[in-house]
C-alpha cells in the first residue's frame, strides 16, 4: 500500500515528518497515562486489601495537597508538550504552500464523477484539455487551480499533498512539488454523491522530458481515422449522441458536458478509475455505463452491436 507516509513530494514529506513527530509524542503520552493507570490500580487494590473498603469521606489534607500538586505537574507538562506540538505544526505548515520557482499552472475542474484537467499554454490555442489523468513533471512546482462544476469535491493525492476542496463558486489552490517519478493514486475525498467511490484520479509524475513530450502530443488535434471501421465510428460519433456531450478536437464534436476524448486511447483508465482502458472494457462501458458505474451521468448510448464495434475502433485510434 502507498499513501501519506510514503511521500513523493516536498509537501508530503514535510507533512509526514510532522506526522511522525506527533506520533512519537502521542505514543509517549499514551504509554505514560497507561502506566500511571496501571500503577494506580495496583496501589488502590493493595490499599483496599490492607485497609478494607470503607469509604474515606475526608482524606487527610496534606496528602490531598500532594496529589493535587501531582495533577498540576502533569497538567503543566501536558501544556508544554501541546505548545511544542503547536509550534511544530505551524513550522511544518509553512512547507505545504508554494515556492518561488516559476510554477506550472494546471486547472482542475471536478464534475460528478470525473476530473477535467486543463494545461494552459503560452497561446490560447496551446490549451490542453484532458480528463481523469494528471501528469506532472518532477522537480517543478505545479500550481493547481481548483474549481467544481456541480457539488463540492476534494482532490487528494496522498503521496503528493494534503487534500483541498473544490467548491462551486470558489477557486481554491494547491501547490505540489513532486520529487519522485512514479504513478500515484488520487481520489475525491469529499462525499459528492452516488459514485463518490469511483472518482479516482491517477497521477503520473514524469521526468521533465517525458512530460513535455506528453504535453506536445496532447496539444495535437485528434488523428484522422485511418481504417474503414474507424471512419464509420467517427461518423457515428460526430453525428450521433456522443457529440452531444463530448469533444474530439479537430472534429464537429465540441460539447463540454462529459470528458474531452481527443486522446482518450492514451489514457490508462476509463470513467475516472472505474475500469482499465482496453477495447473490451470500452465496449462494455459504451453498451451499458449504468451497469459498470451506476448513477454515472453517461446515458446508455443505444448503439447497435456493429455501431459499437466501429465507435470502439474509432476511440481506440485516438492516441
Amino acid at each position: 500500500m502507498t499513501g501519506a507516509l510514503d511521500p513523493a513530494s516536498t509537501q508530503a514529506l514535510a507533512i509526514s515528518i510532522l506526522w511522525w513527530v506527533f506520533f512519537w509524542t502521542g505514543l509517549f503520552v499514551f504509554a505514560a497515562v497507561l502506566v500511571a493507570l496501571v500503577v494506580a490500580c495496583v496501589r488502590g487494590r493493595r490499599r483496599a486489601r490492607r485497609e478494607g473498603s470503607a469509604a474515606e469521606a475526608v482524606p487527610e489534607r496534606s496528602l490531598e495537597q500532594r496529589r493535587e500538586r501531582a495533577v498540576l505537574a502533569a497538567t503543566v507538562l501536558s501544556v508544554v508538550i501541546l505548545i511544542g506540538l503547536l509550534v511544530a505544526s505551524i513550522v511544518g505548515g509553512r512547507y505545504i504552500y508554494g515556492n518561488p520557482s516559476p510554477p506550472l499552472p494546471v486547472k482542475v475542474i471536478a464534475h460528478q464523477w470525473w476530473w477535467e484537467i486543463q494545461y494552459p499554454g503560452p497561446r490560447s490555442s496551446d490549451l490542453v484539455v484532458t480528463a481523469n489523468e494528471l501528469h506532472l513533471p518532477a522537480g517543478r512546482t505545479a500550481e493547481l487551480e481548483l474549481q467544481a462544476a456541480d457539488v463540492i469535491h476534494s482532490l487528494w493525492i496522498p503521496n503528493l499533498q494534503g487534500k483541498r476542496d473544490l467548491i462551486p463558486g470558489h477557486t481554491t489552490r494547491l501547490s505540489i512539488l513532486p520529487e519522485r517519478v512514479g504513478r500515484y493514486d488520487g481520489h475525491c475525498a469529499e462525499f459528492c454523491g452516488l459514485e463518490h467511490a469511483r472518482m479516482e484520479l491517477p497521477v503520473f509524475v514524469e521526468s521533465p522530458e517525458r512530460f513535455s513530450a506528453w504535453l506536445t502530443a496532447q496539444r495535437r488535434p485528434a488523428p484522422a481515422p485511418s481504417t474503414p471501421e474507424a471512419e464509420r465510428g467517427a461518423r457515428i460519433f460526430t453525428k450521433g449522441p456522443c457529440a452531444m456531450c463530448h469533444t474530439v478536437t479537430g472534429t464537429d464534436a465540441a460539447a463540454s458536458v462529459g470528458p474531452d476524448l481527443t486522446h482518450v486511447a492514451s489514457r490508462a483508465w476509463l470513467a475516472a478509475g472505474a475500469l482499465p482502458n482496453s477495447p473490451r472494457n470500452l465496449r462494455a462501458w459504451l453498451s451499458d455505463p449504468q451497469r459498470l458505474k451506476p448513477g454515472s451521468q453517461m446515458p446508455p448510448t443505444g448503439l447497435s452491436e456493429s455501431e459499437l464495434d466501429d465507435v470502439v475502433h474509432y476511440l481506440g485510434s485516438l492516441r
Partner: peptide, 30 residues
C-alpha cells in the same frame, strides 16, 4: 483554530489526571 483545538486537550487531560490521582489514593473495588 489549530491552537484552540489543541488547547481543548488540556481540560480533558486535567480530568484524566484527577481520576488517576483518585484511583491512586483510593481503596479500589474492581
Amino acid at each position: 483554530f489549530t491552537a484552540a483545538s489543541i488547547m481543548i486537550a488540556i481540560p480533558s487531560g486535567v480530568q484524566i489526571f484527577c481520576w488517576i490521582a483518585t484511583l491512586w489514593s483510593g481503596r479500589l473495588v474492581l
